[in-house]
Amino acid sequence: MLVLGIESSCDETGVALVEVSGAGVPVLRADALHSQIEMHQAYGGVVPELASRDHIRRVVPLAEAVLQRSGVALADIDVVAFTRGPGLAGALLVGAGVACALGAALDKPVLGVHHLEGHLLSPFLSADPPEFPFVALLVSGGHTQLMRVDGVGRYEMLGETIDDAAGEAFDKSAKLLGLGYPGGPALSWLAEQGDPTAFKLPRPLLHSGNLDFSFAGLKTAVLTQAKKLGDELDARKADLAASTQAAIVDVLLKKSLKALEQSGLKRIVIAGGVGANKLLRSEFNAACAARGVRVHYPELHLCTDNGAMIAMAAAMRLQANVQTASKVYAFDVKPRWPLGDLTA
Rank of each mutant, 00 (worst) to 15 (best):
L106Q: 04
G103V: 07
I310N: 04
M316H: 01
V222S: 01
C288M: 10
P204N: 06
P338E: 04
A136T: 11
G24R: 03
A166Q: 01
L339H: 02
M157P: 14
F134L: 12
S52M: 08
V328E: 12
A63I: 14
P26V: 02
L318V: 03
V80E: 05
G180S: 15
L240W: 03
K175Y: 12
L120T: 07
E261Y: 08
L176G: 07
L339M: 15
V269Q: 09
G142T: 07
A221H: 04
G159C: 12
E299W: 08
G217W: 09
V80G: 03
L158Q: 10
D341M: 15
V251C: 10
V269G: 08
G141F: 04
V25I: 15
Q193Y: 09
K255I: 07
G85V: 03
V222M: 04
W189Q: 15
Y43T: 12
T161P: 01
C303S: 06
N321Q: 15
T144V: 13
M316A: 00
L176T: 11
S256Q: 08
G71A: 05
T324Y: 07
A75W: 09
Q41N: 13
L252Q: 07
S21I: 06
T197W: 13
D195L: 06
V94W: 01
G230S: 00
G264I: 06
A81E: 01
T161E: 00
L146I: 12
S282A: 13
N321M: 11
A89I: 14
A63G: 11
K255V: 06
W337C: 13
E160I: 09
G44R: 02
V293D: 00
L279H: 11
D54E: 14
